[in-house]
Design a protein around this nucleic acid. Structure first.
Length: 547
RNA sequence: GCGCGAGUAGCUCAGCUGGAUAGAGCGUCGGCCUCCGGAGCCGAAGGUCGUGGGUUCGAAUCCCGCCUCGCGCACCA
């Protein structure tokens, strides 16, 4: 048992002895101010009312009942309205570092969700253009959430859904056709709702080279196929540059060719929530909390995107995913209720809250102090690859992950570029590099630094105690981040911990200290290096040995 | 108008699911290089947590009203 667990057990015992119910769960937390000790409990405050006593009296009674030595406690105090502060003995405080050395890369992992599968869908950009900065945020977020969940035991499937059917793909094909005709000498007429980007011209040239018999793009199906293929290739390159890999690429078009779309419509009609009106087929999604009913089959006989969306999520359920998470931009939040309603209308036993959604707010891109409009159709936008080329992969990933998804994000390109050397990610990576430097300069293989015979009590400096706390809190931190689907907590922890490393490093030497101190500090340095590397890996960032 | 999200230091944002004197980075001002990396460290100034009520031992955090900003409200995705 760790020091905290021992302490909690002792508190429970003491509380019950005072007359608290046996299921009492004492809360222990880190005080904000280190002067208040290593752990604090509000137990006396919560017990005061049911016991009919003053909080401070309860606190005194609790302390009198505790076996402090067994829990490694050196001192207690009652503070404020009735908090009990605990200060651990130096050795009890530092000894758990042995667990970090023993676990190594596995430190912070858990098997809480072993044997459970989860599908995480993200990016899912239409194959109508390169990935832009908004997709970048989603790629960083989805990849980090995937890593977080894998870290607590889930078997994760990363999935990309291609909307390669529908009106927008038709507009894409027509746009390429227009460029082909421009190349053939016609005046350029980009169709209504068409795409203006330069890349359309590139696709036209590719098509012309492959289809010498159709220089004007009269065979629209062939044009469409080439366009989608080329853009998927481009997006794959973008993702590769960003270091994001998917397990499954799911094509919307396959839902049509496999008959899933018609199957789904038939099932929805059978379910009794469908009706015809004004020449269209509708689903009464208002039966399931939607604010208006939705069209499934338009008057022209084609389906709205709503139907394949539902059919797609049915396949997730049928593929055995009892948990599915969709990472999407908040501009798509209207689909949440709709998709869930469609799944409910099927009455096939899918839970009402299926699937889960993580919605992130929009990204505003600033360049030269002005907003760059993100519009595929206008052909003027910042791509993921632009960003990576300008500020580097690690910096882009960290930038996207350092704040929570619900916050809007201002990505100032000039700032990110100008400050590249002062970017938080460099500060964090520098901490790792410095720790690595100790072993390099000392010509010590970190793997040979073990916890055997370490004088834990020597790690008694305030900077050491603070750093140790951060390292020992890491498993709880990542478990909470996974639970909340919030990678930014890891990013924040990294920055704070890196600062603790720099402060400690600056103030205390390792090499050349008396043997017992050097050994203890080497253990601390190796521990910190392990945990920083694990956290960096979780966010998809590199942990350089030197910079 | 309705739904969702956000209002915290000059700027960009955290705040561990209700705790003690609300934090960090950048920026500003002032210090620190015989010593494992100064790409670093230390210090200072800077706040009515949008606003008004409520809940309780205790609220930036939970509830209600109002204000401001963003996104959405298609037989587009």
């Amino acid at each position: 048992m760790s020091a905290v667990e021992l302490l909690r057990a002792e508190l429970t015992r003491a509380a019950v002895a005072l007359g608290a119910p046996s299921d009492v769960a004492p809360n222990l937390e880190r005080p904000r101010d280190p002067k208040h000790g290593d752990w604090a409990s509000n137990l006396a405050l919560t017990l005061a009312k049911p016991l009919g006593r003053k909080p401070r009296d309860v606190a005194e009674a609790l302390i009198a009942t505790l076996d402090l030595g067994a829990a490694g406690v050196a001192a207690t105090e009652i503070a404020g309205p009735g908090f009990i502060n605990f200060r651990l003995r130096d050795d009890a405080h530092a000894a758990p570092l042995a667990g970090i050395l023993a676990a190594g890369p596995a430190y912070g992992r858990s098997t809480t969700h072993a044997g459970e599968g989860v599908n995480i869908e993200f990016v899912s950009a239409n194959p109508t253009g390169p990935l832009h900065v908004g997709h970048g945020r989603q790629a960083a977020l989805g990849d980090a959430i995937s890593a977080l969940l894998a870290n607590v035991g889930w078997t994760v499937t990363r999935e990309f859904y291609y909307n390669d059917g529908g009106v927008q793909i038709q507009n894409l094909a027509l746009s390429v056709q227009a460029r082909l005709r421009e190349l053939a000498g016609d005046a350029l007429v980009i169709p209504e709702g068409g795409y203006h980007g330069e890349y359309i011209k590139d696709i036209a040239r590719t098509y012309a080279a492959e289809h010498a018999d159709d220089p004007r793009g009269d065979q629209l199906d062939a044009v469409r196929q080439v366009a989608v293929l080329e853009l998927r290739k481009e997006q794959d390159l973008d993702l590769k540059a960003f270091g994001v890999a998917f397990d499954v690429y799911f094509l919307e078009s396959s839902l049509y060719t496999d008959g899933k779309v018609t199957e789904t419509v038939a099932a929805l009609q059978k379910g009794g929530h469908a009706f015809e009106d004004d020449g269209a087929l509708w689903l009464r999604t208002t039966d399931f909390g939607d604010d208006k009913d939705r069209v499934m089959r338009k008057r022209d006989g084609t389906f709205t995107y709503f139907v394949p969306d539902v059919a797609y999520h049915v396949t997730k359920w049928q593929r055995g995913f009892r948990k599915a998470i969709n990472v999407q931009g908040a501009d798509h939040h209207s689909t949440v209720t709709r998709v869930r309603a469609g799944l409910q209308a099927l009455e096939m036993g899918i839970p009402a809250g299926y699937p889960d959604y993580v919605l992130h707010q929009m990204v505003t891109v600033m360049r030269a102090g002005e907003e760059v409009k993100i519009s595929k159709r206008a052909g003027s936008y910042v791509t993921v690859r632009d960003l990576i080329d300008e500020v580097g992969r690690d910096a882009v990933r960290y930038f996207f992950l350092m704040r929570k998804g619900e916050s809007q994000l201002v990505f100032d390109i000039d700032l990110a570029r100008a400050q590249s050397e002062e970017n938080p990610v460099y500060y964090i990576q520098m901490a790792h590099a410095r720790l690595s430097g100790i072993f390099r300069v000392g010509n010590i293989d970190p793997a040979t630094v073990t916890a055997d015979g370490v004088a834990w009590g020597k790690l008694d400096q305030p900077e050491e105690r603070e750093l140790i706390k951060a390292l020992l809190d890491y498993p709880t931190l990542v478990a909470g981040a996974a639970d909340a689907l919030e990678p930014h907590r890891v990013a924040t922890w990294l920055l704070e911990t890196a600062r603790l490393v720099h402060t400690w490093y600056h103030k205390h030497h390792v090499l050349g200290e008396p043997a017992e101190i050097q050994q203890a500090r080497l253990v601390l340095a190796r521990s910190a290096r392990i945990v920083l590397a694990n956290a960096l890996a979780l966010l998809g960032l590199s942990a350089p040995e030197r910079m």
